[in-house]
Design a protein around this nucleic acid. Structure first.
Lengths: 189, 189
DNA sequence: GTCTATAAACTGATAGAC
DNA sequence: GTCTATCAGTTTATAGAC
């Protein structure tokens, strides 16, 4: 039962609004109204609108980065690693689906260092993902098809989980992981 | 070699900008600068910023709707129908990848009737997709897994094609269709 | 078809009272 | 911690000259 700081309350409320309309279309007045205060009062807790966005996105990106680093440095085979990546995305989505909307759709509105930092993490994440698939193909754990399409289609699905999951009612995380692994890795035909 | 109307040039330029920053973050001055004219001059060709957005999105949504209607009313089996849906998405993406960014990310900024019209088309599209998968499971053409996850993961991948395809160099549409069908329907393990 | 000038509303953010 | 008042800049869009 951790108590939230006022800043965290603002960030959480902002994430919901950003999800609905996007960062640029949400005004500080919109956010203030949602919080039941005036826009000027927000600035006692945050420095700028931009700070809200970077707080949401960078924290999530670092979560994915450290999760991926653990998976990469483990001694599992390629299929097990892919299963753990699926599991990582489901865990993060269940914890903060709203924030993932900003990470997916509003990262380009980050400024300066945070934009570069984010783009580096995203690139590294994709490279790690690609290397795992490539290794799996090399050792015949994965059908060779087209590696780029496998990477793209799997990541597309995992990145869009934040939109789909909230619409499912009372879905169990472990069943979701099992079904997701089945559909993404084993096909439907 | 059809000649484009000035309005269509504006709409095409806008689609590229909307893809990069989103509808709300693109100003009429941004668009005018890209076109090499002043913002006020744009209004000789279009009525409003909103009209540009609806032109982009509604045309694409109607393309998907009529394509899906053809597929639904054909007498093919479920797998063939899914293959044709994949083919439909690839064709539309190759023809107008920029516009699909707006359809995917900025549809919520449509106003009044156009918003309702779009939401109806999207809902019908998803319902048709779901029915095709359901039928395929009933007649044992498709592994039963979890129908909702199959619908979600396939649509996620197809909807994200607009981001991925432009980064691939010189990819042939027919090879892409074959590979996509293979990965989406037949799995990777 | 494009321009300059400008209206009217909205934006993120600050100063200072309580 | 929230308020009122306000600033300086930006936004979409219009009017009218060329």
């Amino acid at each position: 039962m951790r108590q939230e700081s006022r800043k965290q309350e603002i960030v959480n409320a902002a994430a919901i609004l950003f999800k609905e309309k996007g960062y640029s279309a949400v005004t500080m007045r919109d956010l203030a109204t949602t919080m039941g205060i005036k826009a000027a009062s927000l600035y006692n807790h945050i420095q700028s609108k931009q700070e809200i966005l970077s707080t949401i996105i960078i924290e999530l990106a670092e979560e994915f980065t450290s999760g991926m680093n653990e998976i990469v440095s483990s001694d599992q085979n390629s299929i097990q690693k892919l299963e753990n990546i699926i599991s990582l995305h489901i865990d993060v989505t269940l914890r903060n689906a709203d924030g993932l909307a900003s990470l997916n759709n509003d990262w380009m509105h980050l400024e300066e260092d945070n934009l570069l930092y984010f783009e580096k993490m995203r690139q590294d994440y994709e490279d790690n993902f690609r290397q795992i698939v490539k290794k799996g193909v090399d050792v015949n754990e994965i059908k060779s098809n087209n590696i780029e399409i496998i990477v793209f289609s799997t990541l597309s699905t995992l990145r869009t989980l934040y939109l789909w999951y909230p619409k499912q009612k009372n879905i169990d995380a472990n069943i979701l992981k099992k079904d997701m692994i089945s559909v993404l890795l084993k096909g439907v035909v």
